[in-house]
């Protein structure tokens, strides 16, 4: 019982002290959001986000452009290496071959570092030694066609394989037609191909 009384009196005293000390200072107001800084804050977040997005987009675009460039280089390379075919026993450039060679000209003009080896091939018919000469004439006819568009002659070397390197085995017209051809090997500037129009 004594313990409880003591507790009560301490409690009362406390109340008294409090009642006699005047008004307590008001608690500090809770921080009110400042509209400017909030906007600035939000703006900076948005800006960062936008910048991030822009950077990502820029990178993506760059990657896409690079991929597109690579694709066009690959395409240009394939165009440079595309074979052309000849009629039986002839070294004359056919219309379809002229179209293919014309496409090479544009790439070669835009890519002055690129050099080509032109390989002339013949089908198995006729004469083995004559076919070496015929292959050379075909390679030479291609070189003449290309230099005719103002490309320097020293960008092309020619070699004939005669009938010795057929593309397709067989003694039939289908195989022969594939085998009398000009082939192209990039001997310099393979990493400096500029697709035309760049």
């Amino acid at each position: 019982m004594i313990v409880r009384r003591f507790f009560v009196s301490v409690f009362a005293a406390t109340l008294l002290v409090g009642a006699c000390g005047g008004d307590p200072p008001p608690p500090p107001p809770p921080p009110q959001p400042d509209q400017d800084s909030l906007r600035r804050y939000n703006d900076s977040v948005a800006a960062a986000e936008a910048a991030r997005r822009a950077e990502a987009e820029r990178l993506a675009a760059e990657r896409a452009a690079e991929a597109e460039r690579q694709r066009r280089i690959r395409e240009a390379r394939a165009t440079l290496e595309e074979m052309v075919f000849f009629d039986y026993d002839m070294s004359e450039i056919r219309p379809d071959a002229a179209t293919a060679l014309r496409a090479k000209v544009e790439i070669l003009r835009a890519s002055p570092q690129v050099q080509l080896r032109i390989e002339g091939h013949a089908d198995e018919r006729g004469s083995t030694e004559y076919n070496m000469a015929l292959g050379n004439r075909r390679a030479e006819a291609i070189r003449q066609f290309l230099t005719g568009f103002g490309l320097a002659e020293n960008r092309f070397e020619i070699v004939s394989f005669g009938e010795g390197r057929p593309l397709q085995q067989g003694s039939n017209e289908a195989a022969w037609a594939r085998n009398r051809r000009g082939q192209f090997v990039i001997t310099a500037g393979a990493n400096m191909i500029n697709p035309p129009g760049n």
Binding site: D89, S91, E129, Y130, A133, L134, R137
Partner: peptide
């Protein structure tokens, strides 16, 4: 010797 001076296909 063999010649191609008369053109293709007629060595």
């Amino acid at each position: 010797f063999n010649t191609l001076r008369f053109g293709d296909a007629v060595p």
